[in-house]
Simulated assay, not measured.
Amino acid sequence: MGGKKRIPTPDQLRDYNYAVAGHAGTLCDADGELFIKPCTQTEIDFYQAVETQGYREFADIMPLFMGELRLSNPEEVPLDDGLMGVIAGNGDLKTTKEQIAATIAEHVAKVAPDATSDQTTWVPTQGKKIKTDKSVVLENASFGYKKANILDVKLGVRLWADDAPAEKKKRFDTISSQTTHGKLGFRISGMRVYQGSEDESTWDDEGYTIYDKDFGQLTVNDDNVVDSFRKFVFNKAAGVDQELGRAVCSAFVRDLQRIEQVLASHETRMYSSSLLFIFEGDGDALASAIEKNNEILERDSAESYTCPPVERTNMRLDNRMDSGIVLEDEDDFEDEDEDEDDLQLPQIYTLKLIDFAHANFTPGHGPDENTLTGVRSLLRIFKELAGEDD
């Protein structure tokens, strides 16, 4: 995101107090920069461990963590101008005081007394959101895009944690054996692609083609998996041609290499975590964003000192390409926060490791090879799509 991050204080977080309501399960602040996600205590603990125990490298590959929120009863929520609204079970945004109170009351009634405790009998959620009164407040990774293409890839060959009930282990092992989890260590959980189909009748109201979880579980296999990722990136209808698509894939390669390095150098265990891929899906906006980024950065570089052109968005490539995408060296700009405030650079792409409901740091147990299997498979695929040699 261009410009300096706006991190709210604890008092400001309490002022938000956006009770998360319904199966939609998420909420953004008025500007769309914050993302409030229901979670377990384990996920909160993982984010806090990264913040407080010095795992700086992990913080770089995760969404920016801004704090935690707890679900409030309606009478405890300050229904004033500070509360923008809640998302109801049908996905509608409720904004009046009466609607907010009713929606919060509905969700509170659905929350189990101890939603995160172990269960003797495991019951599949069937895609429903967890029942919890806890949420993490994160930077919204999709903020700032004109038409964000989004891909969620679930990682791992094994998908269950050690304390999972036997029935859950059995079900997840079946999913793994019948999908790309088994050999490649990942599965496409879902994706949305701007104008991602020649049949406009398949587009939603915003012009997106939606590929739900059945796509990754029933359609994608070891033989067609590369073509499935190609559907996500390369899209002539939206103006993402071969050159732009390869540039995006090269950028993802760079970040995948970084994520591999971080995971290989830390001792963790995480099950059913995901990688979230986002890039500007409107080809004209993508090309314009790349051009604008480089114009600003070349100018800034020329004014400060002589160095190769760099970029302060998430694009991380070693050298300038014909696309104009270049590498950011964070150390070169660590003292220039005041300049960044004046630079509102358009988003180009983002790659983040997400979902830590079953994640822990495990000193003495070595790197998480289960998760790394999926990362390395993705790295090979994006290198192929980028036209890079191994």
Rank of each mutant, 00 (worst) to 15 (best):
Gly190Asp: 07
Trp203Cys: 06
Val226Glu: 13
Phe215Val: 01
Ala164Met: 11
Lys231Ser: 04
Asp173Ile: 05
Val226Met: 09
Asp205Val: 07
Glu200Trp: 13
Ser228Arg: 08
Ser177Met: 14
Leu184Glu: 13
Ile210Asp: 07
Thr219Ala: 03
Phe186Ala: 06
Phe215His: 01
Pro165His: 10
Gly185Pro: 03
Val220His: 01
Lys183Cys: 11
Phe229Ser: 02
Arg192Ile: 06
Glu200Tyr: 10
Ala237Pro: 00
Phe172Val: 06
Ala164Val: 09
Asn224Phe: 05
Leu218Asp: 08
Asp204Cys: 04
Gly216Thr: 07
Lys170Met: 09
Asp223Pro: 00
Val233Leu: 14
Thr174Cys: 04
Pro165Ala: 09
Phe234Leu: 07
Phe229Met: 09
Ala237Lys: 14
Val226Gly: 05
Glu167Asp: 14
Tyr208Lys: 10
Thr179Phe: 15
Val225Asn: 05
Ser197Gln: 03
Asp204Thr: 02
Ser197Leu: 01
Lys169Cys: 13
Asp199His: 06
Thr219Asn: 03
Lys183Trp: 02
Tyr211Asn: 01
Val233Arg: 04
Gln195Trp: 07
Ser189Arg: 11
Phe186Glu: 14
Asp173Val: 01
Lys213Met: 01
Asp205Met: 10
Asp223Met: 10
Arg192Thr: 03
Val233Cys: 03
Ser177Gly: 05
Leu218Pro: 00
Ala237Val: 03
Asn221Asp: 13
Phe234Trp: 12
Lys169Tyr: 01
Gly216Ala: 02
Thr180Gly: 08
Glu167Cys: 02
Thr180Asp: 12
Asp212Thr: 01
Lys169Ala: 12
Glu167Arg: 14
Gln195Met: 11
Leu184Pro: 04
Leu218Ser: 05
Asp227Glu: 15
Lys168Val: 08
Lys236Gly: 02
Asp205Ile: 09
Gly182Ala: 14
Gly216Asp: 08
Lys183Ala: 11
Asp222Pro: 00
Arg187Ala: 10
Ala166Phe: 07
Tyr194Ile: 02
Ile175Gln: 13
Lys231Asn: 08
Gly196Leu: 13
Val193Thr: 13
Val193His: 04
His181Asp: 06
Glu167Phe: 02
Lys236Arg: 11
Arg171Ser: 07
Thr219Cys: 00
Val233Trp: 10
Val226Ile: 15
Phe232Gln: 03
Lys169Trp: 11
Arg230Gly: 04
Gln217Met: 08
Phe232Gly: 02
Gly190Pro: 01
Ser197Glu: 13
Glu206Thr: 04
Val193Arg: 09
Gly196Ser: 06
Lys183Tyr: 08
Ser201Cys: 00
Arg192Asn: 12
Arg187Asp: 12
Gly185Lys: 14
Arg171Asn: 05
Arg171Phe: 07
Asn224Asp: 11
Glu206Gln: 10
Arg230Lys: 15
Arg192Lys: 15
Thr219His: 06
Asp214Trp: 11
Gly207Ala: 09
Ser177Phe: 06
Lys213Gly: 02
Gly190Asn: 05
Lys213Asn: 07
Glu206His: 09
Ser176Asp: 09
Leu184Ser: 12
Ser176His: 07
Gly207Arg: 08
Lys231Trp: 07
Thr209Gly: 00
Asp204Ser: 05
Ala164Pro: 07
Ile188Gly: 04
Gly196Ala: 11
